[in-house]
Design a binder for these strands. Structure first.
Lengths: 335, 335
DNA sequence: GTGAAAGCGCTAACAG
DNA sequence: CTGTTAGCGCTTTCAC
């Protein structure tokens, strides 16, 4: 990599002249600017980012810590973050906590040593279960702002972007009640996450409000084969005529299982699931989905962080929580 | 962030003493080391990564450029890269090229300015179509090693990690021929990618070798609804009794479509697809899959790059191409 | 055993 | 209009 020093030497001027010339400083003569720029072009000079970072005390890099990149929702959020960040000239450094508190702490520590200007993160499962938040508070105290999304720690003062999980499931359940369904089941493989709990609560509220209905919940564990679990459960509860799925897989699996039982979807049984457009294609009829607008969540989080980073002057403004509304897309597995 | 300077001041010693003490230098007295370390601990001192990078002229960061993070295979590779890198004390900076040559070039440029020590990347679709490789060559000339995976540019001299796409499809097709299938179709939504072409060729070879068979290919475009396309195609070709899918979705969709036509899988029709374990759950029976071992691919790529980065002494060793073998997992959609 | 000084690549205040 | 200098945080050589 060619440096200012080398350019300066070759041009027989000082380093600062070169620097100023490249930055179009008023101080430098037109002729000199031209000469400098030509040589820089020739050598394909690009300022060293590390030196700039050290000098300016900011890296233009955002640290992103997500629990699981194989989760379609999370990788979609990451996509949204990357796009928005890149638009504003920020790079992202990604760490994967693998749902482990320890790895989450490590990543935070690691990146907090000057590598990044701030964080966007989603709590690991273990962090949520143990409800540990000290590492977040420390990071913030160190001067690195954090934006949390989806799974957030309410007791940490920072910006947040969340989904209206409770409302979304409540309304989806209502929807099924309006279809006159008698036994609406709730499938989830995320019952230990805050969002999983919220979704279940939304479902429960709608069911209980309707008097004549009873909740029926299937919790699928990580180690289970989801297909087998759902087959067994639906065999056991033949009266199920509607399903809400809190995760992206259970919905399409439920439709496929129902079909394999000879049931007609949506005539005999309706299904709604939190899912993405691509996965909804994995069943016939296509799964009616609650769309979480993951990219938008990511973009929002990035915006909030960048705003805070660039608003160095105006002192710490109030912390905000942005709620991204879900939308119900009827694809064919509902009436 | 507390610095050496501040610690030195507080301890009434020089900066270099503090630095040496923290690095357990022999030169420094035991007592001093103890004092320094205690204060460092108290203030939770961590050396500034940016300063270290500038000094040591390496960042311990790997740049990863992938065309699409919503692609399950690619995000799985990313997972493998991240894990391996993290194991060796490397961070990763991720850029998403969005299948665009321009964005790929930009990302390469951007990160090549001292932000990363080397690259792991998968070519964008546009790059493959236009067959442009100048930007890779330049980056390498600049001293930044590249490891390419999956979609690679054969004309660039660098380490590569690829899948035995041709062989995998060839063998899978053979497998279906051995089941005595009469009309084996090939579904793909990646026909413009090198890997897509290789897969189709493997299929073609097996089909043509068998004399009595004819190839039957369905190419699905990005803008198509894959489900509708497959339904239409299978209606049109009622004689299809086996399907090979080059992408992760078409396989499960094919099974679901077949089932909706009243066909029995695998009795009436067999299906094999390049897919992941989780997606294979989205059909009944579960899709028999060609597993690409994405995580392993990522891990291999990271290892190769890190090896090259740390092997500063031994001069440029030969460039290697590692082929990661696929394996066929029979899940129920084949005999 | 400890400290001063140089230098990584860059910017910017200040001097000329 | 151009150059000198200091400094970002750190390591390391060389004096003391």
């Amino acid at each position: 990599m060619v440096t200012l020093k080398q350019l300066a030497k070759e041009l027989n001027v000082s380093i600062s002249t070169v620097s100023k010339a490249l930055n179009n400083s008023e101080e430098i003569g037109k002729e000199t600017i031209k000469r400098v720029k030509e040589l820089a072009e020739l050598y394909n000079y690009k300022p060293n980012k590390v030196a700039l970072s050290l000098k300016q005390n900011r890296t233009n890099t955002i640290g992103v810590i997500i629990p699981d990149i194989l989760n379609h929702f999370l990788s979609k959020v990451l996509f949204g973050i990357e796009r928005e960040a890149s638009l504003h000239g920020y790079n992202i450094m990604t760490c994967i906590s693998n749902e482990s508190l320890e790895k989450e702490k490590e990543s935070l520590q690691l990146l907090a040593n000057g590598s990044v200007d701030g964080f966007i993160l989603c709590l690991s499962e273990e962090t949520q279960i143990k409800n540990e938040i000290e590492h977040f508070k420390q990071t913030i105290k160190r001067g690195l702002p954090i934006v949390m999304f989806d799974r957030v720690a309410h007791d940490v003062l920072c910006d947040k972007v969340i989904v209206d999980d409770f409302d979304a499931t409540y309304r989806a359940t209502k929807n099924l009640l309006d279809e006159n369904r008698k036994q609406i089941a709730f499938f989830s493989n995320i019952d230990d996450l805050s969002v999983g709990k919220l979704r279940e609560r939304g479902y429960n509220k709608a069911i209980l409000e309707s008097q004549s209905h009873k909740p029926l919940v299937l919790n699928i564990k990580k180690e289970d084969n989801p297909q087998e679990k759902i087959i067994a459960f639906m065999k056991q509860h033949k009266n199920i005529d509607a399903v809400i799925s809190a995760d992206s897989a259970s919905g399409v699996i439920a439709i496929n299982v129902a079909t394999s039982f000879g049931l007609k979807v949506p005539k005999d049984i309706s299904v709604i699931g939190f899912s993405s457009q691509s996965v909804s294609n994995h069943s016939i009829p296509r799964l009616s989905t609650i769309r979480q607008h993951a990219k938008e969540i990511g973009a929002n989080a990035a915006q909030m962080l960048i705003n805070r980073l660039q608003n160095v002057s105006g002192e710490a403004s109030e912390f905000k929580t942005k709620i991204v509304k879900t939308s119900l897309v009827k694809n064919g597995s509902t009436l």
